[in-house]
Every structure is written in structure tokens, then in C-alpha cells.
């Protein structure tokens, strides 16, 4: 019996679909293939996949609408795949509830890495339950009760806004958070000048978390947003 998680691949192009099938096969994942939005919704609701890989340019539906529908009953990770290099489409999908995105052409390595990040999030949520009092990610530790963050047991000094940013990213580890989402969560309402401030806060926060040569904790997705990476010694999430 195969205990590997089930992946739902929604892609209308046969060549790309078979490429993904081959890639998933090599890693021993189980997968279901859907060729359009209608099939995707049926599969997603009946098969309970662990992760959905969703192409945004489907013939019958807007990918964003599929995300919104899926989000009404499940929080499963959705990775959108877009041929359009327009950032606006990705941001729209992320704001609609997608977790991550890939731009065509993507490498198989990258696809698998993103998939692992998503699966880890599912597992972490399953094991940790909802909200634990302490967050741990590699050498980074956040004590929510005390309101302190540590790197290798050394407390790092954060301003209130930086701390709130860190917590927001930590609670969504592995997920790309859009600028708009972060601004709304931290500032409530925001003005254009806050967008610049966010860049500066993030840059200083990243510097404070930077401890050496390893992969940074916070990944910048220029024009889109930021993401907290799960670190476990192995560096496999490099895009």
C-alpha cells in the first residue's frame, strides 16, 4: 500500500501534463490528472488530494475562480502554475488563497522542491495542531508567549513591527504572502508610503535573521511578496 500523498495535477496541455506525471512518478508520488476546471473541482472534492498543482490558463474556467471555490471547503496547499509572466496574475491567485506559484518554463527540480515545501506545511499543521506556543524552524525560535525571538538561543532585538512581521511569516511558513496581504495584516489600512516602509522593515528583519552562509529565512519574491522558508539543515528549497 502506497502511503505517499496524493497530488492533483490540473493542466490542459498534454505535454506539460505528461512531464509532470513523469516527474511525480520518479519521486513515487501518487497523482490524479485533470484536464480542465470542471474535472479539477470533481477530483478535488472527491479524492481529497494533499496538494493541488493548478495551471492558471484553463480552457473552461479562470484558475482564480477554482482557487476561490476550493478554498470554501479545504485549506490544502495550492501551487499555481502560470505561463504568463505578468506578476498581477500571480498576485491575484495568491490573494485568492494560493500558497505558491511557478512560472513556465519551470525546471522539474523546482517543481519538486515547491511540492516538498507544501507537503511539509501540511504535515506540520497536522502534527502541531492549530497554534503552538513556541515556533521552531532550524535555529530560529519564536516564543509567542514571551514575545521573543531567538537565533541559536541568542535573543534577537526586534521592533514591535518587525516582531509582528516575523510572527505573520512564521505562522504561514512555506506560503508566499503578497505585499497587500502583509500590509493589511500589519498596518490595517495602508498608504503608498507604507509600501516603501514594508520593503525597509523586511530588509532589516532579514539582516537580523541572517546568521551566516546558510539559506535566508525570508525569501523575497520581487513584485509579489515574501515567504518564510522551512529550514531543516538540507537546502532544497532554492528556486
Amino acid at each position: 500500500m502506497n502511503n505517499k500523498p496524493l497530488i492533483l495535477v490540473v493542466e490542459d496541455d498534454a505535454a506539460v501534463r505528461s512531464l509532470m506525471a513523469v516527474a511525480l512518478d520518479t519521486q513515487g508520488y501518487r497523482y490524479h490528472l485533470a484536464r480542465n476546471g470542471a474535472e479539477a473541482l470533481i477530483e478535488a472534492s472527491t479524492q481529497q488530494p494533499a496538494v493541488m498543482l493548478l495551471d492558471l490558463g484553463l480552457p473552461d474556467m479562470e484558475g482564480v475562480d477554482i482557487i476561490r471555490k476550493v478554498r470554501t471547503w479545504t485549506g490544502m496547499p495550492v501551487i499555481v502554475i502560470s505561463a504568463r509572466s505578468e506578476d498581477a496574475d500571480k498576485v491575484e491567485a495568491l490573494d485568492a488563497g494560493a500558497d505558491d506559484y511557478l512560472t513556465k518554463p519551470f525546471s522539474v527540480d523546482e517543481l519538486l522542491a515547491r511540492l516538498r515545501v507544501a507537503l511539509r506545511r501540511v504535515n506540520a499543521e497536522a502534527s502541531a495542531g492549530s497554534e503552538s506556543a513556541v515556533y521552531e524552524n532550524g535555529i530560529l525560535r519564536i516564543d509567542y508567549a514571551a514575545g521573543c525571538a531567538y537565533i541559536a538561543d541568542q535573543e534577537i532585538h526586534l521592533t514591535p513591527i518587525e516582531y509582528r512581521l516575523l510572527c505573520l511569516l512564521a505562522r504561514n511558513t512555506g506560503k508566499v504572502l503578497t505585499h497587500n496581504y502583509i500590509l493589511k495584516e500589519i498596518w490595517g489600512s495602508y498608504t503608498a508610503s507604507d509600501v516603501g516602509s514594508l520593503r525597509v522593515f523586511m530588509a532589516t528583519l532579514r539582516k537580523k535573521l541572517q546568521t551566516g552562509g546558510e539559506q535566508p529565512y525570508i525569501q523575497t519574491h520581487i513584485g509579489i511578496g515574501y515567504r518564510m522558508l522551512k529550514q531543516d539543515g538540507r537546502q532544497e528549497d532554492a528556486p
Binding site: 506578476d87 498581477a88 505585499h179 503608498a192 509600501v195 516603501g196 520593503r199 525597509v200 530588509a203 523575497t220 520581487i222 513584485g223 528556486p239
Partner: peptide, 17 residues
Amino acid sequence: LNLQTELVADTVEEALR
């Protein structure tokens, strides 16, 4: 143009990737 305020250093890092 889709203009936004960005850190110039971020663009360099992104480009290097």
C-alpha cells in the same frame, strides 16, 4: 509600467538568480 516601491538591492538579488 506597473510601478511599485522596491528595494533596489532586491532586484539585483533576483536578477542574479
